[in-house]
């Protein structure tokens, strides 16, 4: 379980500080794949960085915090300040640009163990790694190669192997398949799902692609303009969304056999520099009233385990005539 307590994270810029994550407060249960979706700049990646404890300038934790409850270590308190010692042992990371995340001039074998303690038995670890990567449809020799000798898909499998080998409790994946073609992408996703089922770790999976989320996520977190707007079981979020933004995201997905023009979400998110008042989605929301513009909706549990921040959660959207 990961508990996010009123998390506020800021970036320092020449214009001042900007809140990229603004008061996210929720509890992520263990053993789930949690999909995080939202437009660019809504704070998905920042949220992952904070959870990972990668708080380097210009990113800083303004207030709130993260409680990590590791399955077999209840006594020790872990915070974003001390999580670093568990990097790749209990919490691991599959980066956004994973295609270029391997050092081109060093053999992969060395990159697999160079963060271990000097006294660790690296040869023995590597033997286990060789067996492990075979399960991931990677040849054992791939470990003795340089990155440029592997294809994009193999490199990405290697990143997944690296992130899962030490059986971490938490895996953060930041658009791990964006750079790959659809067929390879599917292979990687299935691999990730299979490994998660075996190891029962918590996977936080960021993607723009609602289709991908529908296929692999157990739970969905929808973010909008630095806030969490909806969080719940995937099945329910997709079948009965509470927040109008979620509904509009889902409505923008095409269905097979339906040749209607899809309705996108018109407009753009507000600038985080502005003085934001009321609901941040109000300007684009077909349901918005004066109340939405004045009063910020709280992030509350509308149905069991299904949270949303909307005054009119669950209301039907007005019918829009598809543009000709």
């Amino acid at each position: 379980m990961i508990r996010l307590n009123q998390l506020v994270a800021t970036y320092t810029t020449v214009r001042g500080t900007v809140k990229a994550v603004d008061g996210v407060d929720l509890e992520i249960p263990s053993g789930n794949i949690v999909g995080i979706a939202g437009e660019s700049g809504c704070g998905k990646t920042t949220l992952l960085k904070v959870i990972y404890g990668d708080l380097v300038y210009p990113l800083a934790l303004d207030s709130g915090g993260v409680d990590y409850v590791f399955a077999d270590d209840d006594r020790q308190e872990v915070t974003t300040e001390t999580i670093q010692q568990y990097w790749f042992k209990r919490i691991s990371y599959i980066p956004q640009s994973s295609m270029s995340s391997l050092n081109p001039v060093v053999k992969i074998r060395k990159q697999f163990v160079d963060f271990l303690e000097p006294k660790a038995n690296k040869e023995e670890t590597l033997d286990r790694v060789r067996q492990f990567i075979r399960q991931l449809d990677l040849p054992a020799e791939a470990l003795d190669s340089y990155p440029h000798q592997l294809s994009g898909g193999m490199r990405q499998r290697m990143m997944v192997a690296l992130a899962t080998f030490f059986q971490p409790d938490i895996i953060l994946a930041d658009e791990p398949t964006t750079a790959l073609d659809v067929v390879v992408q599917k292979g990687i996703l299935l691999l990730l799902v299979r490994l998660q089922r075996q190891m029962q770790n918590t996977v936080l999976f960021v993607s723009h692609d609602m289709g991908v989320h529908y296929q692999i996520s157990h739970r969905m977190l929808i973010m909008y303009a630095a806030k969490a707007v909806e969080f719940g079981e995937s099945a329910e979020v997709f079948s009965a969304p509470l927040h109008p933004y979620t509904r509009m995201l889902i409505d923008s997905l095409p269905n097979i056999g339906d040749d209607h023009m899809r309705q996108g979400v018109s407009g753009r998110p507000p600038s985080l520099w502005d003085d934001l008042r009321g609901c941040r989605f109000a300007a684009r929301c077909p349901l918005a009233t004066q109340r939405c513009r004045d009063e910020e909706p709280a992030f509350i549990e509308h149905r069991p385990n299904h949270f949303a921040a909307c005054h009119y959660a669950g209301d039907e959207l007005p019918k829009v005539e598809p543009s000709a």
Binding site: S98, S100, S101, N103, D114, F115, L162
Partner: peptide, 12 residues
């Protein structure tokens, strides 16, 4: 470079 950033995130 992404590989240096990633190395830092690995805890090297």
């Amino acid at each position: 470079e992404p590989y240096v950033v990633f190395a830092r995130l690995k805890g090297v």
